[in-house]
């Protein structure tokens, strides 16, 4: 309860400070709109459905790309961990491409796929997949070999060892890799939506972009607010339960 109160007070203070700065007219109201006007924008956008629609479009792209990224990244990571040849080839490629800021995929995707959903998807997949590959590989390499030996004496064999020993043993690494993959996918999708206008769907990134073009600062800030909220929500819903379970089971982080 006390923690919630702290959180509430902190944000109340933040908004009060913002309101105060607005009232003092340090800056033009075009650059610093009032909290109230941002709230009004969000309210209207929520009422006319444009906000919900944009959120839905963005989340659909994000989840589809993220899902594909994991489905590809996980097995590739397992393979690069298992075979030296693949580690030296695909693994190195993954390491290199993971270091590439995912925005850099946007020009390439545009030329390859044009202004289409495929371009969006491609950028998100590229943002996700390399992190997942590397995290899985690291996780598998860090599995205590004693676990595998113990499992073998208990009659565990190839596939069983991979599914019931190596995968669960590397879960802490895999989950943090998935989290990182999510963050990269999210960033790359926003970059793509801001840069690329496509007619098949208006995402949050587009709303942000048009906010700028129309000099509607309350829209820009309002959408940023929604983006932050979605990020927090994803963390709490998608990753927190996993991480809590891991900490509980493994006994890491007693907090």
């Amino acid at each position: 309860m006390k923690r919630y109160l702290t959180i509430f007070c902190f944000f109340a203070l933040l908004i009060t400070a913002w309101q105060w700065a607005y009232a003092q007219k340090f800056w033009s109201p075009v650059l610093v709109p009032s909290p109230e006007s941002v709230g009004r924008y969000l309210w209207e956008a929520a009422l006319d459905g444009s906000l919900a629609e944009a959120t839905l479009v963005t989340l659909k792209r994000l989840l589809a790309g993220y899902f594909i990224g994991i489905c590809v990244g996980l097995p590739v990571g397992l393979l690069t961990a298992r075979f030296r040849f693949l580690q030296d080839t695909l693994g190195l490629l993954a390491l290199g491409l993971q270091g590439l800021p995912s925005v850099c995929w946007v020009p390439l995707a545009l030329l390859w796929f044009g202004q289409t959903e495929a371009a969006m998807l491609f950028v998100v997949v590229m943002g996700t997949v390399w992190s997942v590959v590397l995290a899985t590989e690291t996780g598998v390499r860090n599995v205590n070999p004693l676990y595998v030996r113990a499992a073998r004496t208990m009659g565990s064999r190839w596939l069983h060892i991979w599914l019931y020993v190596i995968m669960p043993a590397s879960l802490p690494f895999i989950v943090s890799g998935m989290k990182q993959g999510w963050a990269f996918a999210w960033r790359s999708l926003m970059a793509a939506e801001i840069f690329v206008t496509i007619l098949t769907g208006f995402g949050l990134g587009h709303l942000l972009h048009y906010g700028r073009e129309l000099h509607a600062m309350e829209q820009v800030i309002g959408i940023m607010f929604v983006l932050v909220l979605l990020g927090l929500l994803a963390d709490k819903l998608l990753f927190s339960p996993w991480e809590k379970w891991l900490h509980h089971r493994w006994g890491t982080n007693k907090a």
Binding site: N144, L146, Y147, R149, A150, A151, T153, M154, G155, S156, H160, Y164, V165, P168, A169, L171, R249, W250, G251
Partner: peptide, 25 residues
């Protein structure tokens, strides 16, 4: 069956889950 200097118990399973691991096979 083998026992090691480190327990080599699996941290992702609870106590009984560990004992059941071989029985599942």
């Amino acid at each position: 069956m083998m026992m090691f200097q480190e327990s080599a118990l699996f941290p992702w399973l609870d106590t009984i889950g560990n004992v059941m691991f071989a029985l599942k096979l």
